[in-house]
Write a protein that binds this DNA or RNA. Structure first.
Lengths: 156, 156
DNA sequence: CCAGCATAGTTGAATAGTCAACTATTTCCA
DNA sequence: TGGAAATAGTTGACTATTCAACTATGCTGG
């Protein structure tokens, strides 16, 4: 006997799916239009830009940018061919590679960021109270931690 | 001078991106494993199953399932070839088509739903208080309405 | 030491998604 | 009425993503 969702949960779930799909789609389109980047690519560049020496090991980058290793590998090849980053062999682990943000990549990111941030504000934060911003973070944290604990338990 | 995000908004934004990506990815994998359906396909089948006579015009279905018309058209072709639904010409508007859920499609959905719902509970609602569920819905509604008003304004 | 397992990352084929162009029909209104 | 514009839906080419297989290297216990 499956535990169904309560009516309140149903509503919340559908609202969440609609809001997050539309929000992410809109941001995707906006980034594509203004900067020729997908949201995934943008995340990759952001993480690199914040890393020491603007470089990061492939696996760590994949984890932080929330994409699979395979997808990152393809994405890095694309971004590399656009000159936005480079691969660099790791000297202490000969299996390893770094992705390094180029100046051009950094410039592209700097050009894309302001209008992207404006869009995030416009589509999300301008429509929320301070309490709602706090609630959004707490809800998100709860989801992320629960997932982490669950996978910790199943691995350990 | 771009309005940057406040530190609180930054945190909320990153937490939201991580939580929603992981949640949606997990659900996607679970549905794929258990029922051989993508989340998009699942949404399509759900909407059809709730429609009168289990059928719906392509455009309305696309709107409700939050996918582009082109994507729906491809998806319907796939699902049709799997026998989960059928296309049916509309008699009052000769441009129009209905997508109709087959018995097999309905059965597939019934088989997939319980474990999917369990997963939604487990990954999301089990980790939230009642207040948080309410907050999640209000936040989502706020985002969706703001977007609707904005596009209404730009269209009108 | 070294055999076996784990980890880092890549690849290519298969699948899915996007975008713009296209057909066919309907609606609007001068 | 008729012709422009809007709407419904499809298509195909291109791009992106996934999945499983693969190479290469590092680690670990007997």
């Amino acid at each position: 006997m499956p535990r169904w969702l309560t009516p309140e949960e149903q509503c919340a779930w559908r609202a969440f799916i609609e809001a997050s799909s539309r929000l992410l789609d809109d941001l995707e389109h906006q980034l594509q239009r203004e900067a020729g980047l997908s949201h995934g690519d943008y995340e990759v560049l952001v993480r690199l830009s914040e890393a020491p020496e603007r470089r990061m090991r492939m696996s760590e980058l994949a984890d932080q940018a929330l994409v699979s290793r395979s997808r990152l590998s393809h994405a890095v090849s694309r971004l590399e061919s656009q000159g936005l980053l480079q691969r660099q062999a790791c000297e202490t682990d000969r299996r390893g590679m770094f992705a390094v943000l180029t100046d051009e990549g950094f410039a592209r990111l700097e050009a894309a960021a302001p209008s992207h941030v404006d869009e995030v504000r416009r589509l999300l934060f301008d429509n929320l109270t301070e309490d709602q911003v706090r609630a959004l973070e707490e809800i998100s944290q709860a989801v992320v931690s629960a997932r982490r604990e669950a996978s910790g338990r199943s691995r350990g």
